[in-house]
Amino acid sequence: MRPFIRMLTPVLFVLMALTLSGCGEQFIVLDPKGPIGESQKDLIYISTILCAIVIVPVLILTAVIVWRYRDKPGSKASYKPNWEHSTKLEITWWGIPIVIILILAIVTVRYTHMLEPSKALASDKKPITIQVTSMDWKWLFKYPEEGIATVNYIKIPEDVPVKFQLTSDTAMNSFWIPQLGGQLYSMSGMAMTLHLQADEQGSYFGSGANFNGRDFAQMTFTVDATSEEEYKSWIEEVKSTSPALTMEGYEKLTEPGSSEVMLFSSFPVGLFEKIVTQYINGDGGAHQQHGSEPASEDADTADSAAANDESGTDNNAHHHGGH
């Protein structure tokens, strides 16, 4: 019986994974609330089923062979110690994986183009833009059109595409809201674009998925998707009741440490562009301190414009620092 138990464990796991999916709100990756996450979930199911077509028979075959050909006195199973080759069989098992992988490859290539993160989502509503900066160890979110900023909190309207522009002020991180869709790295010296959308109102878990130092685990945030009216009134409320984010305030944020949720009614003009282009620097090597220049002396206006350029969104515009 023992070999059977051994074989059964992984089979049970596959069954468990299949049955658990769908049910259980905790499986947030499999419980998406937006078009990108939805497609990714479909893709996960398609690829799992395609793989299972090969895997399940192999697991069963393993159990049967191990059981039938075990060495026991008086075994009636055939024994052919020199049988070592069969062109027909070998063509079969080169062939089956090739076919499966071919199908999976076609699906993958299609979805890869379809779900390219910098591709704008089809919608009749105008997307809102949120500029995301990963810091040590907090997230700074800026709404350039609305003029407000937040730390570790995002509010978005439902059914409206959101264009996230990602950068980092320190080590690389990865911006991930599982229920809306897959993650994308936030890297310093460049602005990357990730389009997501919430189809339903709700509160979604977000986190920094890529390790970036001591308080990395504290880099979680909440995304609230609400009705458009509620969203608009929230913007107004933040504008009227929250303090402004000044340059000094930003510099304080750059100090290493985790942070509570913060709301700001405004932020220095061009701050995001400044963070993105802080490494573009003619005199080779001299380290420009974060935000050490006064905001008025913005020497990188041209580059700032480029970083914010709508036309550059077909592909992620990489603004490499340096020369």
Partner: peptide
């Protein structure tokens, strides 16, 4: 075989956006 299968799942690039770093 099961580990290899989850590897193939990870190789599906757009799905990996949800598996990566998890």
């Amino acid at each position: 075989v099961v580990g290899g299968m989850t590897g193939v799942l990870l190789s599906v690039a757009p799905a990996d956006f949800q598996f990566h770093n998890s």
